[in-house]
Each structure stands twice: as C-alpha cells, then as structure tokens.
Write a protein that binds this DNA or RNA. Structure first.
Lengths: 205, 205
DNA sequence: CAGTCATATGGTAGTCACTGCCAGAATCTA
DNA sequence: TAGATTCTGGCAGTGACTACCATATGACTG
C-alpha cells in the first residue's frame, strides 16, 4: 500500500473524527463544514472530496457495518436463505456492538436532526434493497421470488433496526444478538399478531 | 369556513400542483423554489410558510394517506390487533390507489433524487413509529409489548412499501390490496423463509 | 537522481435552499 | 367603519454544495 493511500485513509479518519466531536459538542445544526474542515486542518473542498454531504460524516460507521455484511453474504453464495439471513443479522449486530458509543451517538443525532434521520433511513433502505437482490438469487426462480425476497429483506432489516434501537439505549446491560434471537423466535412462533387472510384472489402478478 | 381558510387551501393546492408539474417536466434538481413560487404567483416566503422544505412538496399526498390511516386507527380503539393491522394496510393502499399517477410520480422522483428518497423513507419511518405507538395499546401490557409492537408495525409497513413498489410499476394491471393479501398469506403460511432460532438466552430486557 | 505524470489539495466564485425580519395588504370582528 | 389579527412579499443573510483552476505532492521511468 503506497504512501498515498495511507495518507488518504488518515485524513479521512481525521475528518470524520473531528466532525463527530464537533457534532457531539455543539450539535449537528450548529456545526458548519468550515469548522470541521478547519478542525481537521484541511480545506472545505478537500472535505467534500471525501464526504459528499455533511450527513455522511455522521453515518459512515453504520454504513460500513451494513455494507460489510452484505458484501460478506455476497461471497457466501452457497449459504441457504434462512441461515444466510440469520448470519447477516448477526454480522451486522456484531459489528455495531464493536462500537456502542458511536452507534448511540448516531441515533442520538438522528433523533435530534431530521436530515440525519432521513439519511439514516435512506441508508437502511439501500441496504434492504441490496440484501433483497442477494436473497433473490437463493430462492427458486418463480414469479414471486422478487416479492418474497423483498419481504424477507424487509423483515430482516426490521429486526435489526428494532433491536438496535432498544439495545442502543442500554448497551451495557443488553446484548443485541440475543435480542435479535428473541425477535426471530417471536416471529417464528406466531408471537407477533399478524392478520391471517384467505387469499381468494387469483391474480398472479 | 371563512374566506381565509378557503384561500389558504386554494393556494396550498396551487403551489403543490405547480411544483409537481415543474418537477415532472424539468426534474426535481433542475427546478428552483423561486420558479415554483413564480409559477404559483406567490412570493418564495409564502411558499415556505406552507411547505417547510422542497421535498415536502413532493411527498404531501403520500403523507396525507399515511396520516389519515393512522388517525383512523386511533379512532377505532376497540379493533383488535391483527384485524386493525390489516385494516390499516388496506386503508393506506386504498387511498394510494385513488391517485396512481401521483404515487408513481412520487416514487419516480424518489428513485432519481436521493434527497427525495431520504425524505420518503423518513416519512415511512415516522408512520411506522406512530403505528407502533398505536399498536402497543392493543397488546397485553408486558415487558415485550413495545418490542412486539415495533416489529409488527415494521412488518405492516414493509408489506405496504413492497406492495406499492410492485403495484406502482403497473397500476392498471395489478391491484395493490390483493397483492397485500398475497403478502400476508405468504407470511402466515411460512412462505417466506425466515431463520428459526432456539432461543436459549435467558435475558429479559 | 532528474523528469514527468497522475493525483491530491486549497482557494475562489457562484448557486440555491432556507431563515428572520418588517412593512403593508387582506380578512375578520365589533 | 375602526381596530385587531393574520397573510403576504421583499430584503438581507447564512451555509451547504458545485465547478473550476493553479499549485503541490507522492509515484513512476530513464
């Protein structure tokens, strides 16, 4: 790895860390990109080369966790669907658990600032579609495969999100992965009251 | 109703409609708020009094559908949970189906513009939390109620979103509500391959 | 080591979303 | 009609973000 990449990685980290400090100290809205750039001792234009928007400075860590998990799944094409889903869930949570303070700070900022919340939701949605794309390959090819994959990915993401929002409130006394297992059990045993419909439509999309 | 409210409603509609035209003709990014204000023959500051951000101009209709459904559910406290959930899903879809072009345009704009997509996801998330707040009242009060409600609301929202994304591609040949029933059936009959876990953790959050 | 090439950087100028403020117009009330 | 309330448009300003260019810096070649 050349010196160039080393430096690049270093400044990237530096910018993100300084940004995080300023956000936590002064709040997201009361921190300007100029301040962040000055704190990291780079020009504003350099900052924008690394991070396209102010919000990505907040969400980088979470994004990395999600991207990593779906990339990992992509490299395990032999993994069957239910096991793969569980593995992805556990993998994401494992990574998030490696830095509870950061995750908590991210969710705090999201709850205070609408644009951060919006970008977080956008991130989650992107992950969900990526996951669905990967799941559909593991389903028998029929006209419902995409539909089923989208639903399955949504449920997985739903579990992750719900679990994280609970866990992040008390990261020391709870354990995200066992919470996730509880959620899966609830789902599997009918512990979640969902409507049961007689599917009398013959429509086949 | 006084003349004031009539006028207010009229200008609100006017602004939203003109905005929609311009967005569809020129794209979201290539339309400025000044252009919208000029087209609606109001000052920019007036526009901002009606719509806090440019994105809300796009999402107003979808937001109304979602707000309406959750408001309706709030007024039916006697409705049991599974039936209530199904009713909410059908109600949202029914409203969306009343204006397929608008819904399609919203999703088109969202797929082209990141900030619109982000705000749409934010909107969906807000609806999901509102729905969860409403569902938790219909669950036996125990330490899992909130968790269960969040999961159920997430699944309902997941069904709505997935169904709409399929339906919106061919609103003439498909029917959102029967798609939703198919999704519920899939879920209920185990048609969606989800991980089954033996919950051996004794943690009780 | 010198030369040159590719890339990274910082600065400048500009656009545009959005905010706060104020004077005047329109509507409502008595 | 007089006065109180609310709506409106314009103006000035902030700050995120873009396009562009000159310069500097690490990377490669003879």
């Amino acid at each position: 790895m050349g010196l160039r990449e080393v430096k690049r990685e270093r400044t990237r980290r530096l910018i993100a860390d300084k940004a995080f400090e300023l956000f936590n100290d002064n709040g997201f809205g009361r921190t300007t990109v100029e301040q962040i750039a000055a704190a990291a001792e780079v020009g504003p234009s350099t900052l924008y080369r690394y991070f396209p928007t102010k919000e990505t400075l907040v969400l980088e860590f979470v994004e990395d966790c999600l991207v990593d998990a779906v990339t990992w799944l992509r490299e395990q094409p032999e993994l069957e669907l239910p096991a793969g889903l569980q593995a992805v869930i556990e993998r994401v949570l494992e990574q998030l658990e490696s830095n509870p303070d950061r995750v908590r700070a991210v969710f705090d900022l999201a709850s205070q600032t609408a644009s951060v919340s919006a970008h977080l939701n956008e991130l989650i949605w992107r992950f969900r579609t990526d996951l669905a794309d990967e799941l559909v390959l593991r389903l028998p090819a029929n006209n419902r495969a995409e539909f089923t994959a989208a639903l399955a990915a949504g449920i997985a993401m739903n579990i992750i999100e719900t679990v994280v929002r609970v866990w992040v409130e008390a990261p020391d006394t709870t354990d995200a992965r066992s919470l996730a297992r509880q959620a899966m059990t609830l789902l599997h045993t009918g512990g979640i009251p969902l409507p049961a419909v007689s599917d009398n439509s013959r429509y086949d999309y």
